[in-house]
Nucleic acid binder design. Structure first.
Lengths: 355, 355
DNA sequence: TTGAAAGCGCTACCAC
DNA sequence: GTGGTAGCGCTTTCAA
């Protein structure tokens, strides 16, 4: 209980010889208070170290300036960090505070956070659920706290949501590699076979077929160790002497495994095999790796999320015209791991135009 | 304003035919309410979707269940994420909510967050300041909100703090490498020459001297691109034909640059040169990198921070016996990039005991 | 231009 | 066991 000796508007009122109401008005710059009174009040407020009590204010106005966010985790290899960084700064400037909770994919914690945040009267909740089962969130928030669902576990069936279009990544990946002259373009995937993976697969497959190319899809390992999965697949294909000229990996980590396996086998990237990733880990940008990949527009997502949350907070759930749904696409980031197709055993063709 | 139609204790009281006071007590499991009344009240609360209003409660009790945390950023390559993940889950279970703010090292934002959080009556503030200038935090929090300073910008001059002992890292690094038989152990540093770097340097230098070894310290580049700094230093030392047998780098990224440069020069790690890092990036654990390094005990730090914050919240700033100060050490994580010293040009000595 | 009264949802205190 | 009263710090409404 640190609220030990904070001055209140009454403290200020007493010093200024005014009523607490006048002080309240003065501090909020109400039009019906004289300039000099305002100045005097503000001076005293500064001197006494007055800080408004948001609880009392919210109780009275029924407004809130808090937004909750629940995600599996922030940290390495997870895009929520970048999204949060962006939201945080923007929100602060508007006087909005962000409550953040990391669940580690525990449903129990999801409930707990949701409950705690609702008790703190958040104006909106942004949640990236662990599973597609989200009834506990809805049950707690009822129709008093609007929820924005984030990420691939849920889709457009949720009233307010922001999702990624990985189908588009598939289309873009194939078209890009094909434009470089590649015809054997493989797709490396890992389990589990979820929404996200499925979208990439569909985008890839349909585009390959549209281009009259034969899809080559390889599954290996699971999400806990995609690096090894990538290595394993490359080694297997080398043994079978059927290495494609381009490989698109569902994750950067998998692509790193692929590049490492190729390197160990003295196969040059991108001259002999082009490698394309997905996620844009910070390590991927390092010179000696320089992995072409798909980047998530985290900044834009953060800005949009905040915008949606603010709209819903103000909206009172009334004027709300049928839900807010946003779909973002990853953008292709071209580095040194992809290059034009160079037919094998055609010596002299060393035009290394890594366009 | 989403607080549209939340039931309050009065709503429940009306339905139950009780006073709102009785309901309040029943929900808090007060001893002077009959079991059946409690059951009935709780049932109605569930049915109506009652959720307590933390604002009203705090206003009345003057207690708070919110902790604020201000850090430069969460995300890849930053330890705050792991610390926050840990704190978040623990706090949730105790009904404590965490406000998080990322400053991007902007002083303006630091002030803004601090102000917003104090308005929200946090019980304690944990802050990792951008610079050693922290008077704005103290000015806003006064002596009503206890502050725990985190990280290397501030030291034990702050009443409550949690810092890292990088001097110890230096001692451990040198002793470890020396025990492997290395005598030429170099230290690679980058600018700026701050607290953190200085601690590593001192620990390194003093231990080297204690062992009668000659310190070899190389500075290069700055914190924005330590990877290249590492590459540059290796290439320079190779040109000068004075590569040491062991290199300790102030960051993992720098060590990755070192390893890459060594690889390009066909110098084997760890047989010819042992490389030791600092930070334990997630990429460092990958098989093909397998960098020996120092890991930050993020989980333990998170737990301790929460414990400190809770103690300070309850403490009312009274019983407070002279500040809480904690110092953590990084732990040595041994992987494949370090090995016993092998004297050069002694053929046949291929005993690759990567102990 | 200023202020008195009422109330936001909850809890503490004391009387019944 | 139960409930009335008062008050937390602030805003809103309306009267002065």
């Amino acid at each position: 209980m640190p609220d030990k000796k904070r001055p209140t508007i009454k403290t200020i009122a007493e010093i200024a010889g005014l009523s607490h109401v006048a002080v309240s008005k003065a501090l909020r710059d109400a039009p019906d208070i004289s300039a000099e009174t305002k100045a005097r009040v503000r001076l005293i407020a500064d001197e006494t170290g007055y800080i408004a009590n948001a609880y009392a204010r919210s109780l009275s106005t029924k407004a809130t300036n808090m937004i909750g966010m629940i995600v599996p985790a922030v940290g390495e290899n997870v895009m929520y960090s970048a999204v949060f960084n962006e939201m945080s700064a923007l929100a602060a400037k508007k006087g909005v505070s962000l409550l953040l909770g990391c669940t580690g994919r525990s449903i129990e914690l999801e409930k707990q956070y949701c409950q705690n945040m609702c008790e703190n009267r958040i104006g909106a909740l942004i949640v990236s659920p662990s599973t597609s089962e989200v009834s506990h969130f809805i049950g707690i928030c009822k129709d008093t706290v609007p929820i924005i669902f984030l990420g691939g576990k849920t889709g457009l069936e949720q009233r307010h949501c922001l999702t990624m279009d990985y189908y588009d990544s598939g289309v873009t990946a194939v078209n890009y590699l094909n434009r470089l002259g590649h015809r054997r373009i493989a797709l490396f995937l890992y389990h589990p076979d979820n929404n996200t993976i499925r979208q990439k697969l569909n985008g890839y497959r349909e585009t390959m077929e549209k281009l009259d190319l034969k899809p080559e899809v390889y599954w290996e390992g699971d999400s806990s160790d995609t690096y090894h999965a990538g290595e394993t697949l490359v080694n297997r294909l080398i043994r079978q002497d059927s290495l494609p000229s381009a490989i698109w990996c569902a994750s950067d980590l998998m692509a790193l495994g692929v590049m490492e396996a190729l390197r160990k086998n003295k196969i040059r990237v991108p001259e002999q095999v082009s490698v394309l990733g997905h996620d844009d880990l910070f390590i991927s940008a390092i010179d000696s790796i320089s992995l072409s990949t798909f980047s998530t527009p985290a900044g834009a997502i953060g800005r949009k999320l905040l915008e949606m949350a603010e709209a819903l907070m103000k909206d009172d759930g009334q004027a709300d015209t049928g839900g807010m749904q946003e779909v973002f696409r990853s953008t292709l980031t071209i580095r040194q791991s992809t290059g034009p197709y160079i037919a094998p055993s055609v010596p002299g063709d060393r035009s290394e135009q890594d366009k």
